[in-house]
């Protein structure tokens, strides 16, 4: 008998899984419905005309207001980074989905066979430099920005930063 497994959450970025989007390949843009799998970083595209699921490897894609860029080469597994800020420098987020499987014991009333979770890590890409991972702390951000004067808003004396504060700091650095 076929076994049905039920997981809490979804491996996909959006719900509904397919949302209106734009693929960017060699500076050309194509509209299609896009599903982005955060576990595998596979991008699926469905055109209105045929509704067939195509696995694609765009240089970048947009879903709604979110834009993702591919950073790995054509070899190796693709990794897409969400663009949070794009000036001279960039602030990127890598969103990684994970399936945590739970053992569903017969005598226990576990509702799910597993849970999809997502983790975000942040990167700063300075002009003509490789992206560098940062944590949401003043120390970590200043290490990458390598700035003599503190570009972070003076009201934030705490060491922990929010994502908007990280973006603000990089935008201030860009001037």
């Amino acid at each position: 008998t076929p076994k049905t497994t039920v997981y809490l959450g979804s491996p996909y970025l959006t719900f509904p899984v397919y949302e209106d989007g734009v693929l960017e390949v060699n500076h050309y843009q194509t509209s299609c419905k896009i599903a982005f799998n955060l576990v595998t970083h596979q991008v699926l595209c469905r055109f209105e005309s045929d509704s067939i699921e195509h696995a694609v490897l765009p240089d970048a894609f947009r879903v709604g207001a979110q834009r993702f860029v591919r950073k790995s080469g054509p070899q190796g597994p693709p990794v897409y980074y969400k663009v949070l800020y794009a000036g001279k420098s960039k602030v990127l987020a890598q969103i990684k989905g994970t399936l945590q499987e739970t053992k569903r014991e017969a005598y226990r009333l576990e509702e799910f066979d597993g849970i999809y979770t997502r983790q975000e890590r942040y990167l700063i890409e300075l002009e003509n430099k490789a992206p560098q991972a940062v944590t949401l702390s003043r120390k970590s951000v200043l290490r990458v920005l390598d700035h003599t004067s503190d570009p972070l808003p003076s009201t934030t004396l705490k060491n922990k930063l929010t994502v908007p504060e990280l973006i603000e700091a990089v935008a201030a650095y860009d001037g």
Partner: peptide, 17 residues
């Protein structure tokens, strides 16, 4: 697999076989 909202409005992924 199918992604949908369950009876409680939670997002779930259901896979068969």
């Amino acid at each position: 697999c199918v992604v949908k909202n369950d009876y409680a409005g939670r997002l779930v992924t259901i896979c068969n076989g």
